[in-house]
Design a protein around this nucleic acid. Structure first.
Lengths: 273, 273
DNA sequence: TCAGGAATGCTCGATTCTGCGCGGTTCCGG
DNA sequence: CCGGAACCGCGCAGAATCGAGCATTCCTGA
């Protein structure tokens, strides 16, 4: 099977066939992603999945092991830390057209010179990327990945909350984050959630994250939830706040009409883009 | 030959198709757009896509890398924040080996389970990279770049101070940062400075940064300054604290002996590596 | 019209990545 | 306890990629 070095097998990864990924740099991300999903990976499987020889996979695993990003095991590797829930990881590189549309709509809700807050999440990250096209804004965030992206932009003021970093979501949470937020007044907050439901309100996987997001919402005059269609009607572990605390919901055009109607009936403004 | 001012080659170029080359200003935007779609881009594909040579693409990528808008990788580039250290920075040049030696010496000054603080700076960033080889540590930092690198490490606890981000140095500073630090007790702080002098003490270019670093030092039981040889005897604008507040100075072996002697005479422990 | 600077393409030696084979090590069933 | 099979690390060689220097082309302003 040495001849077939193409990764494109029927039914394998969701490869956008427009641009070929950078071989080595991309493999590292894929390996870590697969690892966070399954908890362990095998050399043979990675070789088949990524279309490179097993020798190369071993070299990759050794490099990642030296960086303490995984732990080498006979025949493959196992995940290093114990904490893994949702591999939010960088797969946001998919920057789907939907999220971008939502982000652009979000931009229209921001007035000149306002103080904007962003929680963690792939959709809010996209909102952050769009914000760089505006000037004179202040951006408050507890998401490290958003902060890192916006730090280089001199045209907006970036305020980062303190706190303990959660490696799964890149969010800064905990009492330190909340006390930072207490000294801040926010005009409009864009909130990413794992679920929004008429009765259960906004929910997310982690209870500490929920508490921090709750404080952020309390400090904001307007609260806009950005969520793709899969989040509507969904309820997960930790409760953030009821929908009555939300000003508006921005979601995709192909969201379930029944769910949209339920939320509207509860008095929430729902906009689909 | 005034009539034939046609400099362009109508079609004799070695180009496969009649693609109009994309000029420089547009290329940057296109590259970043493709990067945001796929998470990574290859030099060869960009060359074909934009109708310019690979050499030009490499020059573009280097420029974008210097602006921190992407990260260069072998064979192409990946979007910022997703690189895993391995592609060694050539930006730091030869100085990196020196910084690495200092960082390794710094590692020996950290006990198991201690709370370590890092201010901003290239040397402290290198210390942060070395810290991942230890487990059970807590790391406090006000440097966004360090936080972003350590956020993916599950083997240590990362605490980020709040504050306003300075785009020049990636540091979080201001009253928010200082109030975050007031709730924290630090075992050992590694401090990067722009100058250290027997009489003027520790100095840095920005006064807000100096104030924040001063608070961080006050909260630390041990204070270790990490600085390359060029910083010794140097005095810049903003004062952080006197040398009496410092536990130890870690610097290069080829530091000016006269400066080292002056600092030692003032009672400071100076170690060269 | 002309000159100079910026941008681009090309060549070349050096570096990095990758696949393959070899010998040693680890795992597993009997 | 033992033998086969799978797995590992290492070194080598070919291929891909890189950075730098130089020639050519394009652009701008005097």
């Amino acid at each position: 099977m040495t001849a077939d070095r193409r990764p494109g097998n029927p039914g394998d990864g969701p490869r956008p066939h427009s641009i070929r990924p950078v071989r080595k740099a991309d493999r590292f991300g894929r390996i870590l992603e697969l690892l966070s999903q399954g908890g362990s990976v095998a050399v043979g499987d990675l070789s088949a999945e990524l279309g490179v020889s097993e020798a190369t996979i071993r070299r990759d695993l050794r490099a990642l092991d030296e960086q303490r990003l995984l732990e080498r095991a006979y025949g493959g590797a196992v995940s290093q830390g114990t904490a893994y829930e949702l591999p939010v990881r960088y797969r946001a590189g998919h920057a789907r057209a939907e999220k971008k549309r939502i982000a652009r709509a979000a931009l229209e809700r921001v007035g000149d010179g306002e103080v904007v807050a962003l929680t963690g999440g792939t959709t809010t990250t996209e909102v952050g990327r769009q914000l760089v096209h505006r000037s004179g804004l202040s951006v408050v965030t507890n998401a490290l990945n958003i902060a890192a992206e916006l730090a280089v932009r001199p045209n907006l003021k970036l305020i980062v909350t303190g706190g303990v970093a959660r490696s799964a979501s890149y969010e800064l949470v905990g009492p330190l984050a909340e006390s930072t937020l207490h000294g801040i007044n926010i005009d409009v907050a864009f909130v990413g959630v794992d679920g929004i439901d008429r009765d259960a309100g906004l929910t997310t996987q982690n209870e500490t994250e929920a508490a921090t997001n709750r404080v952020l919402i309390e400090r904001s005059r307007r609260v806009i939830v950005v969520a793709d269609a899969s989040k509507l009607g969904r309820v997960v572990f930790a409760s953030i706040c009821p929908v009555s605390a939300v000003t508006e919901l921005l979601t995709e055009a192909d969201a379930d009409p029944a769910q949209v109607e339920k939320l509207r009936a509860a008095g929430l403004t729902v906009t689909t883009v």
